[in-house]
């Protein structure tokens, strides 16, 4: 397949073939990186990280990926230190940075900010998260983690737990998974169910969907994807405490899982996966975070037209 995408804005724009291509190339990249530690594929190129919102994992893994490819990194990590405070528009900010860099990764709370950025510059733009809309590189590393474990995504049963209403990670992941032959089990409190739009889209595409409030529904799943339930989603703090305590993956839940099942989490976690799970053979969340390096390194090369 010839790669033709210049920008990485939304997972919804990816065909299944394009996703599979990224995952295959990420595997090649991972091997290259472990064999050589540092490559020179991006030598002489500069990556600009424009993080108007705080981020640790996404920003640092992009930075690490670029450095492992032999490139340089510039940027900022909070809107407080940027020109946005002075009233500069995103459109102006990216046009300025275009003069300094070869690729832009942008995170901004405004939904659609990465698409806007891509319309004003001629260098590639990668979406590092735009409000509660999209986080495509997270989705690709999630899929990479699943594929690495099971060799394929088709045929798997995937349970997604936690805040399914507001979590952009789970929306992007669901958008991508509907391109595969999978069964999905959504576990959440009733007030944080998956948006109806996504449920009806899944049904139209013939994806098997089960929605439940009970963690026991996860026992037949191959993948358990856990997300954090955020306090600010609940007007009543007591209700939050009750819900938070109900959706905890601990050893009693883990005992009932399939022996080959893996547990994933986009991190940071608070208390939704108890620390005792970390030592079990099911835990994959730290590996998942590490997979951000080969996947993001692959994307940096692909948008720059560099063959892997």
């Amino acid at each position: 397949m010839e790669w033709s995408k210049k920008h990485i804005i939304s997972i919804r724009e990816f065909t299944r073939e394009e996703i599979d291509f990224v995952l295959e190339k990420s595997e090649v990249m991972e091997k290259k990186l472990s064999a050589e530690k540092k490559l020179d594929l991006m030598k002489g190129k500069i990556l600009a990280l424009m993080f108007f919102e705080p981020s640790t994992r996404t920003r640092m893994s992009f930075e690490a990926a670029m450095k492992k490819l032999g490139g340089e990194v510039i940027g900022f990590g909070s809107s407080e230190i940027t020109s946005e405070q002075k009233g500069e528009t995103i459109a102006d900010a990216v046009r300025v940075i275009e003069g300094y860099a070869d690729i832009i990764v942008i995170r901004h709370s405004a939904e659609g900010s990465a698409r806007l950025a891509s319309e004003f510059v001629s260098i590639p733009v990668i979406n590092g998260g735009d409000g509660s809309n999209q986080h495509p590189t997270q989705t690709l590393l999630d899929l990479y983690t699943i594929k690495k474990e099971f060799k394929q995504i088709d045929g798997l049963s995937i349970g997604i737990v936690g805040d399914l209403k507001y979590g952009r990670t789970v929306h992007s992941l669901t958008d991508a998974l509907m391109k595969y032959d999978v069964k999905l089990v959504f576990v959440s409190p009733p007030e944080l169910r998956m948006p109806r739009r996504l449920i009806s889209e899944l049904k139209e595409k013939g994806v098997g969907v089960k929605e439940t409030t009970k963690l026991s529904a996860l026992k037949g799943c191959d993948v358990i994807y856990v997300t954090r339930i955020q306090r600010e989603r609940f007007p009543d703090p007591q209700e939050y405490e009750r819900v938070k305590g109900t959706y905890v993956i601990d050893s009693t839940i883990v005992e009932k899982l399939k022996p080959e099942a893996i547990i994933m989490h986009p991190l940071p976690r608070v208390s939704e996966i108890s620390p005792e799970v970390d030592k079990t053979p099911h835990a994959r969340y730290f590996q998942q975070a590490k997979n951000g390096i080969p996947v993001r390194a692959t994307l940096l090369c692909l948008v720059s037209g560099i063959k892997i």
């Binding site: 939304s10 459109a91 659609g112 999209q134």
Partner: peptide, 27 residues
């Protein structure tokens, strides 16, 4: 967002009912 030099764009999706998708926030 104030002062961003863009205009609203919606894509028309037709299934049973007409649905519109925002080009930017994808809602």
């Amino acid at each position: 967002k104030e002062r961003e030099p863009i205009t609203s764009v919606f894509y028309v999706k037709r299934n049973k009912n007409v649905r519109l998708v925002c080009k930017y926030c994808e809602r």
